[in-house]
Design a binder for these strands. Structure first.
Lengths: 238, 238
DNA sequence: CTTGACGCTGACTAAACGTTCAGCCATAAT
DNA sequence: ATTATGGCTGAACGTTTAGTCAGCGTCAAG
């Protein structure tokens, strides 16, 4: 109807509007941004925005899809080169992707089905990467591969969402420069390397949690796929 | 002027309005909630909201202060009983604090000075707790106490902010029931216990990060206080 | 030259928003 | 009996919002 399936005319106002929306939405949130300021930033009239995207919700959906698609592309490239654990990997390095990261950080707390499926994919990829890391002896074995992948991904994304607090606490912004990534990653890999608990304490804590849950522990023989998935399937893998 | 310093009349509409605001703000965000629906939930007129709180911003400020004060109270209680690592500790157990947690999760991504100082306090407390844990042999030593405390706190808060994703991935909501806390904590303590990297990989990774930063490593002799603090001092310690 | 499609705009509408204000109805002091 | 206080309301205020619509200019095709 209103959306072009594969738009070849993306060098016109459409792209400018989406870029402006991405930046504004990332900085001030969706609700905190009016179509007027987006149109102003893009140098077009407010009417053109709705002409192209149907509505504000349509514009947000388009931004979601664009960010998710770009992230998927960067992800596949990262999987090839083996970036691995860092969920957003190579996406951080590109200067142009800074508004993209900020937008994603904002949208992670809203209810966006596209972003939700993206998170699910990130966890799945992390689990796969951790599994191959186990095989090559880089990663420790675990009794709960999915849970571990989920927790590590959530931590990584959580740090992105709270990047302003990270910047204040650690002195460098994750979405600004690579220095920020280093300032955050160094203490992170220290914890991820050897843990925080001493060995005996760790053992007793795990035993306590195994007691708390009815099942003694997630069995390795059990299907290690996610127990609860998003309803929606990945959209445009083709 | 408009705000009562220590309100003794909090059993009237004031408390009902704030509770309704807390719940709505937590569910739909501040921008996504109108004074009208808050007034409706509280069973009062919209005019009474601004009569009590001066403006919508005043209501938000009151909510912030209430949540921060409640969290501080729960925190001190937790420090006494020794809950420790979990930043929000005993706050999770109370059924009544569920809207409070959701509100905090939402406000963590907005620019709220009160919440920012609360986060700083949580990191400081975590650092203190980790230090005593080191002394009693429960916690491993670290070259960067502040960084480790910051990262661990950010991870904990990040999981709270992304509680919907955690719920979808792990099958239980951190803000809903204690089962959610267990579902999340079990893989978390596994990672926090022994780490994810094998020993040699962890060592080489740390060496790589030490090379990346100019300074070889944060020296233990250096002042271990936060390098970047919030401008605002803690408000009402008295 | 005419036609039609497309990118695009200015002027507009209706709704929702935060906020204001005059005043009601209690209770309590004078 | 009168006055004052404070919780509280209904009706409106002006502003901002997303979305509509008729129509502009441009460019390629017939």
């Amino acid at each position: 109807m209103d959306s072009v399936p594969t738009a070849p005319d993306d060098r016109t106002g459409r792209a400018r509007i989406r870029d402006a929306a991405l930046r504004r939405f990332g900085d001030d949130g969706v609700d905190g941004t009016s179509l007027r300021v987006i149109a102003d930033d893009a140098g077009v009239s407010p009417a053109l925005v709705v002409h192209h995207f149907g509505s504000k919700a349509g514009l947000v959906r388009d931004c979601d899809e664009h960010v998710v698609a770009t992230t998927r592309r960067a992800k596949q490239q990262a999987m090839a080169t083996g970036a691995g654990l860092d969920a957003l990997g190579s996406l951080r390095e590109a200067e142009a992707s800074r508004p993209l990261l900020r937008y994603l950080a904002r949208r992670l707390v809203d209810h966006s089905p596209q972003v939700a499926t993206l998170v699910d994919e990130l966890v799945t990829d992390a689990q796969a990467y951790l599994a191959t890391g186990e095989d090559t002896g880089m990663i420790r074995p675990t009794s709960d591969p999915w849970g571990r992948a989920a927790v590590l991904t959530i931590w990584s994304l959580g740090a992105l969402v709270l990047h302003e607090h990270v910047a204040r606490l650690l002195g460098a912004d994750l979405t600004e420069d690579t220095a920020g990534l280093v300032a955050y990653s160094r203490p992170a890999v220290e914890v991820l390397g050897s843990g925080v608990f001493t060995e005996d304490i760790a053992a007793s804590l795990q035993a306590a949690y195994d007691d708390l849950a009815q099942v003694p522990a997630p069995d390795a023989s059990t299907d290690q796929h996610p127990p609860h998935l998003t309803a929606e399937p990945p959209p445009g893998i083709g």
